[in-house]
Nucleic acid binder design. Structure first.
Lengths: 223, 223
DNA sequence: ATATTGCTTAACAGAACGTTAACGACCCAC
DNA sequence: GTGGGTCGTTAACGTTCTGTTAAGCAATAT
């Protein structure tokens, strides 16, 4: 999930950025409304955090401009939170308010809450391939109706490969995308998880037809 | 369709009124519970939007008074809304909740949703799954007809999970949605409440089939 | 043939979860 | 007030499960 933070105070920008990165977001920053608009157009973030008070054009103006062609969730940062400001913010389509000075964890929590509300979790789609179903909402994977009890990693790996069906991924890429960019584990680990998955979803694990090895490259999921 | 909005903050009243007019509703407004009651009797609106906190008589009182002789749909506006507040509202006959600060489009969407629902089947708040019934209106949960005496938190948690049956929720999400967005309690607290619930609704609490653990993710309710 | 790449297994360490008990806050009856 | 009870939270400990690694074996390409 991409978040764009716009604030003219560098220190705030940095602390917020650090916190949100820790929480797993891709963070973009801008120190002015103009930069904010430009980066917004390029990065297409899933959520904006805007300071209300910005030089030249205020955050409110930026909000208005963005609202003209998008429903992206917006959280306002504001020093004073008089009721008047709040109303003005909602009129323009803000989804939440955080008052400075704010608690970093609270901000992170609100970001998540807003994203949850606004997306309604539509990003988590059901995957179906033949008699195999992978449902991230219920965290269930079923084969011919029978539930496969997968471990968290197994599920994550299968879901990722299923979502990008047909495409080959190297072990390193899989580690990056499934395990996460910060994980330092051996590439062999992927082999083991693939093995376990095959045991569950392949008719004959030693002759896989779904989780296929591409020698010298990696693995892919075929329908 | 006629809508009556009761709130003591003029700015909110105005923005909501503008938005709903744009959406094609006839809007009436009142700034106090007394005015609200009077206008309600005159205008006979098809839906009410009530602020929970009003001077003198609270919105809740007004709701109760109106419910005595009418089944008109009511949406509450509230500053903070945990699942407990929500249930309290349902007990008094509220049809939906909108949390301040709210997004105007969201409010409009809910107004339409409630109206759509109210013209159709009425009691959709009740949850039934097998021999388990959960009724927020009476705050009763029964298993095979026998009443389980659940504590408020237990009930709120069970009701939330039951309402979103099948879907997995992380402990953090549960804290946010059931405990409320402002609560800062340890995630393990959820475990304990789940444990207590299992003791009541599971045949064998150590092998749960209704309140299921999804390792690495959280919990879900299965029918 | 031999080097490279992938497969398989088992063992270990640590994380996640379950469970219990204790504590304090709160409410209600007296 | 005062005492008893309930409820929610936390901490601590035990248990189960999962992820990772290593090491040897099998398969494949050059």
């Amino acid at each position: 999930m991409k978040v764009l933070v716009v604030d003219d105070e560098t220190t705030i920008l940095e602390t917020v950025e650090t916190k949100l990165r820790k929480e797993g977001f891709s963070v973009f920053t801008a120190e002015s409304a103009e930069d904010g608009m430009r980066i917004y157009k390029q990065a297409k973030p899933d959520l904006l955090i805007l300071d209300v008070m910005l030089p030249n054009r205020s955050g409110m103006d930026l909000c208005r401009a963005i609202r003209r062609d998008s429903k992206v969730p917006i959280i306002f940062l504001t020093a004073k939170a008089s009721e008047q400001d709040r109303i003005q913010g909602f009129e323009m389509g803000a989804d939440d308010y955080v008052v400075k000075p704010f608690n970093l964890s609270e901000l992170a929590a609100r970001v998540k809450a807003v994203l949850r509300r606004s997306t309604g979790d539509p990003s988590k789609d059901l995957i179906e391939s033949g008699n195999l179903r992978i449902d991230p909402k219920t965290h269930d994977a079923t084969l011919e109706g029978k539930t496969l009890s997968l471990s968290p990693k197994e599920f994550a790996l299968l879901y990722f490969l299923g979502r990008n069906s047909g495409q080959v991924f190297s072990r390193d890429t899989l580690l990056d995308r499934v395990w996460g960019p910060e994980s330092y584990v051996s590439a062999r680990t992927v082999d083991v998880h693939i093995r376990w998955l095959r045991e569950r979803i392949e008719i004959d694990p030693s002759h896989p037809v779904r989780l296929v090895t591409v020698r010298g490259v990696g693995y892919k999921f075929v329908s």
